[in-house]
Simulated scan of single mutants.
Amino acid sequence: MENSLLVETISCTDGSLVGIATLNRPQALNSLDLEMTRILDKALKDWSQQPEVVAVIFRGAGEKAFCAGGDLHSLYDTMIEYKGQPASANEHANRFFAEEYELDYLIHTYPKPIICWGDGIVMGGGMGLMAGCSHRVVTETSRLAMPEINIGLFPDVGGSWLLSRSPGHTGLFLALTGALIGASDAIYCGFADHALARDQWEPLLQALQSTPWARTAEDFQKVTDLIHALPSIELQTGPLESHRALIDRICQEYDLERIGVSIAALSQNEDKWLSRAGQTYMNGCPGTARLSWELLRRARHMSLADIFRLEFGVAVECAAAGNFQEGIRAVLIDKDRQPKWEPATLEETAGDWMAPYFALSIDDPSHPLATLGR
């Protein structure tokens, strides 16, 4: 059986090396499982200790996706097995989220340039891999989203950090609607840095191989320069940017219920992107909406490491509480697209409903991510 994540290096003319990590599950849109997380984590740590490795590239196998998210099928099986038990009982879910978040944090803090070739679909766990890279490249085929509203989770993998730093209230809108954006909006809202045509992959590799590397922090600028030297694609204003004023007006309300009413009303909008966003919100998980709203509110004042610690507690509780399991069932298992959310309305998620999700303190010395960033 072929490895789910391929690790290799290519040689440069000056004797330096560039590491390439290829997510290799194209039939599953390169969804990230625990084995892939562990292989990539080890490769990054090894490369960080090798002076001759000057940069790293992430890419996805196949033509359709960089990474469409985490491996939800294995999580679903363990959620069935541990149904009704405390969040701590599901060891697989705890390991999955802890190791994925540790990897994402490593990427955010990596001492060498990491280029993410964000071609095709980039969602959920794929966004987690891409977000921390120093040079995030999108192409004309890129389609990015944090669509967890559809499956009863929330924009995790540092999504709270990323979305809370998007311009205006666009981050909250994307969290509540799972709206799909292309290259232009990805750069506009801070999810990506550069836009190249898909056919620039080979020229990018050739440019990396022919660059004289300093093997110091100067190499971050060298990567930027060589990307800028390649022909970029012409970007048209995307729907997120063009509807920014409307989105800000809707999402600046303090009361989430009022925001929800306004987003739901978009389902009748003549603009297809807005109407799809409104419809997705209406069909989405009310618990996800509440948790996303609260996490983005808190994330504005927290460090990246603390955000990962906070998200971990919420994620493992989601794996135990039922909506996440039901969302995966409806979207991926039975595929009936008829989830039965509990609670069924946003109003029922007010007050103390959220308390169990935030029960694990980020300062708990036994927290699985206690040493992150410390």
Rank of each mutant, 00 (worst) to 15 (best):
S4G: 09
L6K: 11
L6I: 14
E8H: 02
A21N: 09
T22L: 13
P26W: 10
L32M: 15
E35I: 05
D41P: 00
W47F: 12
Q49A: 14
F58K: 03
G62T: 06
C67S: 15
C67D: 11
D77Q: 15
T78L: 07
E81K: 15
G84K: 12
P86L: 14
N94S: 14
E99V: 03
E100M: 14
E102F: 04
T109C: 07
W117D: 10
G118I: 11
V122I: 15
G124W: 09
G125L: 12
V137C: 04
V137H: 04
I149N: 10
I149K: 11
N150V: 03
S164Y: 03
L174C: 14
A175E: 02
G178H: 11
A179S: 15
A183D: 04
I187W: 00
A195K: 06
A197F: 04
A207I: 01
L208M: 14
S210E: 12
A214R: 13
R215Y: 05
H228P: 00
A229N: 09
L230I: 07
L240V: 14
I247Y: 07
Y254C: 01
S262I: 00
L274S: 09
G278D: 02
L295W: 01
R297I: 00
I307Y: 04
C318A: 10
A321C: 08
Q325F: 05
L332K: 10
I362R: 13
I362D: 08
L369W: 07
